[in-house]
Design a protein around this nucleic acid. Structure first.
Lengths: 242, 242
DNA sequence: AACTATGTGGAAGGAAATCCTCCGGTTCGC
DNA sequence: GCGAACCGGAGGATTTCCTTCCACATAGTT
């Protein structure tokens, strides 16, 4: 099902012209490099850096993806599709919904790319907005996510006073991995993720005093209204000249 | 360099030239605007945007702060100083160390600015590195923070298998507030913070199975080595021109 | 009220970073 | 071995951002 999507990914080139072997290889490297660089530095990094990371020349990059938006879209499509895939795998392979969630949050670099692109970067949001393929993947992904969260609550491993939207927000926070790559930093990061997960865990004796959450559980739809669909009003605190 | 000299006149306010009333007001507005804009968009936003947010002209901004670095330093100094103040207030005024921590994490926008500047932005780290006033504030702040964490563990409200560094890392994650300002988003954010805090809370019956943290507790010094002192190796994936 | 030092805004020149095209040379596939 | 497809990167165009400068406005003083 997603193999089809994968194949059609020529984007700009026609499906009828299968790429030469080296071209295809380069294209994949570009996509991988872009995903990586976008995830850590946002979607506005110089094209040259992407090309360098991919080990190709700028010319090649531009031949494959005529402009930045096109590259962003391609990365987002690939990432979303693969995250959806990962999510389904996790859901079916892991013994409990909780384990599935843990696996997703811990392992998915793709997830980092997707979340970063769709949630935290205004530029990317604008570019991605309206792309039917992406919106479909995203909706399915959120639905799948919601299913896992529900299951985790039902099996008693996740606290009952949250909803999928809460988990998505937390995931977005948690995936904002800092650039440094020192051993200590990595460890600190992993520990932080574990602590956050503990915050989502169900308490044996019910919710203890003092730790009740404000408001009501955030659903996926709540999120959709504000963040995921390209909200037009991100301009907070902007004021006309005076 | 000479910017520092120049700046000391303006910064510490009092020396031989007391600013005119309106000038002082504008200066404060600039600082506030810069703090806000830096916190949400990082320290590389166009100077013009800072000026616009502050409601002043670019000329005014440059007269007060001869260059960007000077402004960054001023913001960092002010933020650190105030966070230190807030932290001490919280520590003494709140009944428990846990309450103090909660108050800090929830209320301190200054904290957001400080953390963002000192932890997540390479540019800012470089600029701030070596400034004695900032380093002193920062060290005291971390020490105070460590004290609160120790107290919270001692009073039994915080899980015993973490250390202050863990809490700092979590705080940095949590303060990465997304730009959108819709009601739902704000609520979602507050809930997420509460959930993270719950992750730090001590469990009544000890640590349940499956939620033990990897590695060992991260101390403030661990952090210092990697992130807080201006590490020379922030250039991950940066390479001279081939 | 008038005077002056101090402060203000923003237009504009200049520097830097980035985009993207274009073409001589290389590699693939047959 | 040959043609078509592909590659890399130099370089001109363009955008973005920094910073200076000065005519006008305002605070504080006599």
């Amino acid at each position: 099902m997603f193999a089809q999507v994968r194949e059609r990914q020529e984007m700009t080139a026609d499906p009828e012209t299968p790429l030469r072997a080296d071209a295809r290889r380069n294209r994949d490297q570009i996509l991988a490099a872009a995903r990586e660089v976008f995830a850590t530095q946002g979607p506005e990094v110089p094209m040259e850096e992407i090309a360098r990371t991919a080990g190709v020349g700028i010319g090649t990059l531009y031949r494959r993806f005529p402009d930045r938006d096109s590259l962003i879209r391609a990365v987002a499509r690939a990432s979303f599709a693969q995250v959806l895939d990962d999510t389904r795998s996790a859901a079916t392979e892991e013994p409990t919904a909780w384990d599935a969630l843990v696996r997703l949050v811990n392992r998915s670099h793709q997830l980092q790319a997707s979340v970063h692109l769709s949630l935290t970067s205004p530029r990317a949001r604008e570019v991605l907005h309206g792309d039917p393929e992406i919106e479909e993947s995203r909706d399915e992904l959120l639905a799948e996510f919601a299913r896992i969260v529900e299951a985790a609550k039902a099996e008693g491993t996740m606290r009952p006073d949250v909803d999928a939207g809460d988990v998505v927000v937390l995931t977005a926070m948690v995936l904002h991995r800092p650039p440094g790559a020192l051993a200590t930093a990595v460890l600190a990061f992993d520990r932080a993720v574990a602590i956050v997960l503990d915050g989502l865990r169900a308490r044996p004796g019910g919710t203890p005093a003092g730790s009740s959450l404000p408001g009501r559980p955030i659903t996926v739809d709540d999120l959709g209204a504000s963040a995921l669909r390209g909200g037009a009003d991100t301009a907070a605190g902007r004021r006309p000249t005076r």
